[in-house]
Every structure is written in C-alpha cells, then in structure tokens.
Design a protein around this nucleic acid. Structure first.
Length: 590
RNA sequence: GGGGACGUAGUUCAGCUGGUUAGAACGCCGGCCUGUCACGUCGGAGGUCGCGGGUUCGAGCCCCGUCGUCCCCGCCA
C-alpha cells in the first residue's frame, strides 16, 4: 500500500469536493460492469461512494477494476466529479458525485461472502455468527456498535462530571452459591480450588464505599451461567454505580440524569421525572413488576362488580377482576376473538373478550367499569377474572391478566401504534418485597440480593414475618424492560447479620461465606447505595433491535456457544492434569 | 430441565396424499454491453435434502434417535 494516507472517508464526499483529488480505501460493495465503462461502490466504515472506471481514458485502471469482486479490499486515487443531473442517485448520501479512478490498487482479494451484505437481506443467525467478521461489515452492525460506543462514552462523561471515579474490580473472584450459577475458573497454583467470574461486582463496589471512594462507577462485564434469552447472554455489560451518603431522591435524580445524557447521545429526549410506582401498584395495574407504560394500566373492578353478576359470570368470590384497555383497537372480529381462545385455554383465568355482550347483560356494571378505566370510544376492553373453584393468589391472577395485556398489545400493535419506534416510557418501581418464598427449598430468598437494606419501619418483622418486610430497592424500567436494579445497602454489620439470619443463614455459615464482608462493615462503613443498568438492553432498545446479540460484537448462541471461535472446547489431558482436574466421563465429543 | 418453530444449492426459500432426472430467486463463473447504481442481456456450473437408524417395492416427505439455530416457560440472589 502506498505510504499516502486516505484523504477522505467514502461517505463524506459531497458536491463541494468536486475537482479535488482524493485518496480512498475500503471494500468493494458491488460492481456494475457495462463493458468499456465500469462502476463499483466503495464502502468504508463511514459510507459508500460510487467509483467510475473508463476504459478509454484510463485503460490500466479499467483492466484492474474488471478483476474486482465483492469485498475485495482496494486503495485508489481519483477525482471527485459532480454527476450529470440525470445520473444523480438520490438514495445515496454521496449520490450527487462520483470518483473517477486514476490509480487503483487491489490490496487484497476476498472469497465470495457467505451472505449478502445488503443490510435488508436476511441471513440465518448461525451463518451470521459463524462469519461474524463479514456480518460486522453490515450497516446495521456498524451503526449499532457506533451507538453503543456513543452511549458508553456519554455515560463516562456524565459520571466524570458528577464526580464519580471509574474503578476496576477483579474478574477472578470468589464463588457465592446464591443467585445465578457461577462460571468457575480452576486455580493451577492451588489445585482443587476455584475462582468464580463475577455475576456482578456487588461486594467490591460496597467495599469501595467502605474504602472511602464515595462515588464509583464502572462499565463492566458480568457473567452468569444461566440459560439464555433474546435479552440475556452469559456475559453481559453493566453500568455499575455506587455512592456513599445517598438519599433515594439523589439516586433517582442521578440515574435519570444519566439516562437523559445517554439518550441525548442517541439524539433522543426523555421526560423527567420518571413516574414512580410501588411494586403493588405495578402488579395491580400492570400485572408485572416491569410495567410497560406505553399503554394504559388495567382497572381493578372487584368492588364495582355486583355479587349477582359475579355469580352469573361464575367468578371466584373475593378475587380481583381486571379490565384491560387497549386504545384504538376497536371491536375484535370473530376471527380475532377466536385467536384469543387458545391463549386462555390451559390458563387458570376466565377471559371475557366480548365487552358489548357484558354491556347487554350488566349495563350498570359496564358503565361503571368504563368510567373506572377511563375508556374511550374505540378502545378494546377485555375482562379477566378467576373462575369459581380456583385457588390463585391475587398477585398471580394479576400476573396472568398482565400477560394477556401484553399479548393483546403485541397482537394489535399495528392498530394502537403505541409501540412505534421512539416511544420511550420510563418508570421507577419501588417498595419491593424483601423476600420471596422458595417453595422447593422451603425457605425465604432475597428478592433483590441479601445486601439490600429493609425499610426501617419493617425491621421488627424481619424474622417473625418476612413477608411483611419491604426493601429499600428500586428498578428502573423502560417500555416493559427491566433496565436496572438497585438498592440502599445494609451499612451496619448488625443489620446485615439480621438479614442473613432471616434468610436462614446461621452465624457460622454467614461468617464462612461473607466473613470478610461482615468484618469490613465494622470498620466505619458509610451509608451507601447504588444501582446497575444493563448496557446491552439499553443499546438494544435505542437501536430498535429485538435481541442484544445485535448490539454485541461477538455474542453467543442460545446454547452459550461461540460459533466463530468454536468455544467452548474440550481441553487436553495435560491441561486438566496441571489443574488437578479429571473428567468424570472421558468422552470427547465429535 | 420442559414446550414450540426451523434445518433442502453459497444465501433466502418452494417441493402436493410417499412415486420417475429435487426446483425458483438472488449470488457465483464465462460471453456481450459507455451512464449504471438491486445495471441489463445470453450461456453455464452448483445438492451428503443436518446426521444415524427404521418402515416401505420406493423416503426430501412417515417413525425413532441425535446434532444445530431461534423463541418461550423454569432458571437469571
């Protein structure tokens, strides 16, 4: 390659560059060979420009250009020329000009790509992951990675301006059996012992607070060996935050400011302050602890439903009745109502999707229900209750209704339009229950994590009635996606020990697992609290994607494999021996 | 761990009730072409129907198993 650097990016050339000699380098997107006249589109990271090679005026360049194929890597020197009016390509940012090639070099050839690089053209997920080095060249991947960079940069600038320090924490750390399964790393120096990759830097960031760092953040990889989803990868990135001497309003304000700054980097504005819902409000109104506020809440109508009507509808006495309202969907057709039936079948709920019929039978109830839900003409109204003989807890009934709400919202998204790109509805969900009953293990689990502080006023119930204890915890939710989760922590060793006790951990066990931490708490721990936000999900939503794989350069498949590198792999017996490991069944696959 | 969808040419897909030589489009290769931009046009090559077994006179199609990809439930303190 000549020592001359590029003078321009392909995508930045405009009519005002006409007459200039430019040096470009990039990949051949497409070639259009008209015989003695040959065009090709040259692509670099910033865009695409058309290059023209004329056999008559530049025979050597033209001859070389005839060898070009898709994804060949070329260097060229040429003149920017304004196109004749009738040959302008309005669908190309650089379509008003073209580059007349004077010198051309093929820096490298390329195999035929395994799939088209047109961003619109579909390619199978496994082909894309196996040939990620090609897939990454697609405009949508380039755009998503740039967006991710912009958001991360905005976050770092914001925290810096707020006086936060980015501090790294170890990846080789200690296994904590609670929560998600750990990825384990065997120690060679200490055979039979293992590090764990962090599920989050939770204890490190709290110890940084004890260490007087006061304001910490980190954009950090976390690892959880659990089954995957479209929005879950075994390794993912968190924007992790912790501060000393916090108040709840200060944390809300800090994080809303962060999201405002991050959205600004993506050219979006958002409304502040975010609405705050208690967990109970969220469950009752949306049937979910991550409510999607783009559509109205459900109305709970038990008190409006006359006993006679409840009896006639065969609904279980004393249970809530929910009215789902989806605006602008209108009456369902017969066929659409039929689609609903399979949804309800096999679920312990009764669905009344024909509100007009209810209206005929129970005009007064229907009128008060409409009023309670603030229903407008054109709204789809669906009533959900529990059939007689059911045994659901009220919150489970609400959850079922909430799932139907989301199903309807998705099914009729085209009609209500509330899910259009660019609609961002945030909220805080607060006042979570501190504990969840684990029916299998027959014990209480921390709903958030065991370092969360209970509300002061609930402390008396900590061991006697754990179900009455609420946590000083908060989630930030965007469009029904849990973006982040945090809490005020226990900063007194006694309080922390009482939470461990409520979780059924005796002193000895607590000390074995978290002794270092309980010890640290006794050396002047300031009140502190924080939050962690999922960067991948944030980028996914802002990019309008449905999977975080689209915003991660090298993601893994649903079975946690890297199709490009082929990981994981078996390792040699020698490696195992060195680590003091032996496999229970030595059956190398394939 | 469970449920569902999918697996056929390089890619995206079609392939009827099991029936003769498995198709299309795009891509690829070659010829022609001086204003194309999804160039056009003429010709051509390209298949372990994921893999293994079974049923059958006969399997891309039916059955069993297995592998892989995606989605969901469980799981994700």
């Amino acid at each position: 390659m000549p020592a001359t650097p590029r003078t321009h990016g392909c995508g930045e050339l405009r009519p005002e560059h006409a007459g200039q000699t430019v040096i470009l380098a990039g990949w051949v997107l497409r070639r259009r060979d008209l015989g003695a006249l040959l065009f090709f589109d040259l692509r670099d990271r910033g865009g695409v420009v058309q290059v023209v090679c004329n056999q008559q005026t530049q025979p050597e360049v033209h001859a070389l250009a005839e060898q070009l194929r898709s994804e060949y890597v070329v260097w060229l020197e040429g003149e920017v020329v304004r196109r004749a009016a009738d040959t302008v390509n309005p669908s190309l940012a650089t379509g008003a000009i073209e580059v007349v090639a004077r010198r051309l070099l093929i820096l490298n050839d390329a195999r035929t790509p395994p799939f088209s690089l047109d961003s619109e053209a579909p390619a199978s997920e496994d082909a894309r992951l196996q040939y990620r080095f090609v897939d990454l060249r697609r405009p949508s991947m380039q755009r998503n990675l740039k967006l991710r960079h912009d958001l991360a940069l905005a976050a770092r600038r914001y925290f810096d301006a707020q006086g936060f320090l980015e501090i790294e924490t170890p990846f080789l750390t200690r296994s904590t059996p609670e929560g998600a399964r750990d990825y384990l790393v065997p120690s060679r120096v200490r055979p039979g012992e293992f590090y764990a990759l962090p599920q989050s830097p939770q204890l490190f960031k709290q110890i940084l607070m004890i260490g007087g760092c006061e304001r910490y953040f980190q954009i950090v990889r976390c690892f959880r060996d659990e089954d995957l989803r479209a929005d879950r990868q075994p390794e993912f990135t968190q924007i992790d935050v912790e501060m000393s001497f916090p108040t709840l309003p200060a944390i809300y304000d800090l994080i809303e400011g962060l999201l405002e700054a991050v959205f600004a980097a993506a050219g979006q504005t958002l409304a502040r302050p975010f609405p705050r819902l208690s967990w109970q409000q969220a469950m009752l109104g949306y049937g979910s602890d991550k409510p999607d506020l783009r559509l109205p809440a459900m109305a709970e109508l038990a008190s409006l439903l006359p006993a006679a009507a409840r009896e006639q509808l065969k609904l279980r006495a004393g249970q809530p009745v929910f009215l789902i309202r989806i605006p602008n969907v209108g009456e369902l057709s017969r066929r659409e109502r039929d689609e609903l039936r399979p949804w309800a079948e096999g679920r312990p709920v009764k669905v009344f999707e024909d509100f007009a019929r209810l209206e005929k039978s129970f005009p007064e109830f229907a009128a008060s229900a409409r009023a309670a839900a603030a229903a407008q003409a054109g709204d789809l109204l669906v009533l959900v209750g529990e059939p007689e003989g059911g045994a659901l807890p009220a919150w489970e009934l609400a959850r079922q209704a909430g799932q139907l709400r989301l199903w309807l919202a998705q099914r009729f998204a085209a009609r209500h339009g509330a899910f259009a790109a660019g609609a961002f509805r945030f909220c805080w969900v607060t006042e979570f229950p501190m504990f969840e009953w684990d029916a299998e293990e027959k014990r209480w689990n921390a709903a958030h994590h065991p370092f969360t502080a209970p509300r002061e006023e609930d402390l008396p119930h900590l061991t006697s009635a754990p179900e009455k204890v609420y946590a000083q915890a908060y989630d930030v939710v965007l469009n029904g996606v849990e973006l982040g989760s945090g809490s005020i922590r226990n900063h007194r060793a006694e309080a922390q020990a009482r939470v461990f006790a409520a979780l059924g951990m005796n002193d000895e066990e607590a000390h074995r697992r978290f002794g270092f931490f309980l010890e640290a708490l006794r050396y002047g721990t300031p009140p502190h609290g924080g939050i962690a936000l999922g960067l991948d999900r944030l980028v996914m939503i802002l990019a309008g994607e449905n999977s975080i794989r689209e915003v991660i350069a090298f993601p893994k498949t649903a079975s946690a494999a890297d199709l490009m590198m082929r990981a994981p792999t078996p390792v040699s017996p020698r490696q195992l021996r060195e680590l003091g490991l032996s496999l229970r069944a030595e059956e190398p696959r394939r």
